[in-house]
Design a protein around this nucleic acid. Sequence first.
DNA 1: CATTCTTTGACTAATGTTGACTAACATTAT
DNA 2: ATAATGTTAGTCAACATTAGTCAAAGAATG
Lengths: 155, 155
Amino acid sequence: MEGQNISDIIEQYLKSILSDSEHVEIRRSEIANLFDVVPSQINYVIKTRFTIQNGYLVESKRGGGGYIRIERVNLLDDVDVLNTLISVIGDEISERDAVSIIQTLYDEDVVSRREADLMAVMVSKQTLALTDRQVADVLRAHVLVSLLNRLRYES
Amino acid sequence: MEGQNISDIIEQYLKSILSDSEHVEIRRSEIANLFDVVPSQINYVIKTRFTIQNGYLVESKRGGGGYIRIERVNLLDDVDVLNTLISVIGDEISERDAVSIIQTLYDEDVVSRREADLMAVMVSKQTLALTDRQVADVLRAHVLVSLLNRLRYES
DNA sequence: CATTCTTTGACTAATGTTGACTAACATTAT
DNA sequence: ATAATGTTAGTCAACATTAGTCAAAGAATG
């Protein structure tokens, strides 16, 4: 057990709830009060310990009745393929390279034909209509990584 | 279920009626009284939760015997769903409205669950990480229209 | 020491709530 | 007919209530 700092303690608290139910829904300020920390520390805990790589999905809503919801999801077996491809992408990527990555996904049966087609539309020059080519390449990398991360889990 | 704020509760109330009949017809002040809110809150609920992007049509009449009528529209009955949606999108669109449209596509069986999920990732703020919000909105509209156009052909 | 991780708080953004004012329509009086 | 009055709904901006971001300061680690 590592219970040294308060972030670890909050992490354990949330995970103990998650070991029973599939998800937790919290009010940020309540948890912050409970552990006597500033609200933004909750964001820090979530950002560093409840990532999609670890199998957690987070959604939230602001305003009255706002909340933060953490959900446990089933990670799929394609993790290795996805990690490899993500590391290949880097900070920017051309349309041609993006298409070949999508092709790999299809070859490896990670996505269907139709899903691959949609992804190809998403990374195309025409869709990412930006005057500056490099800006488009950076955005395309971002888009592709987001899509690959989405493929890590089901439902 | 997320139902902490009163707007969500009113939304659920109206949708529970809509799950039985094709439409609801309300007197604004009555609903406002029922949930103990000011009348204009009903407008807020309708404006944020019963848009055409969500698959609802709203009409109303003022004066004596006035009413607000919410109707669920079946977009598949429309001759050209996609054209309708594309015209709704316009030149720019918020993430919220975009998600509504994607949800509608899924509800109407135009796309699968997974395809809808990928599309949702695509239009998310995080994916379209741009400093200027309006630029992101414009790009998001572009992306969505591209995707909808892609859905025209069956492959 | 240098580096990385944690903690904090000021500022920002999103969403929800309220009420004063306006617009549309209906009914009644002239 | 027309005007006056009453009865609805619509708009908009101020205010309230949440969560998110970011960078600086502090603590821990090696």
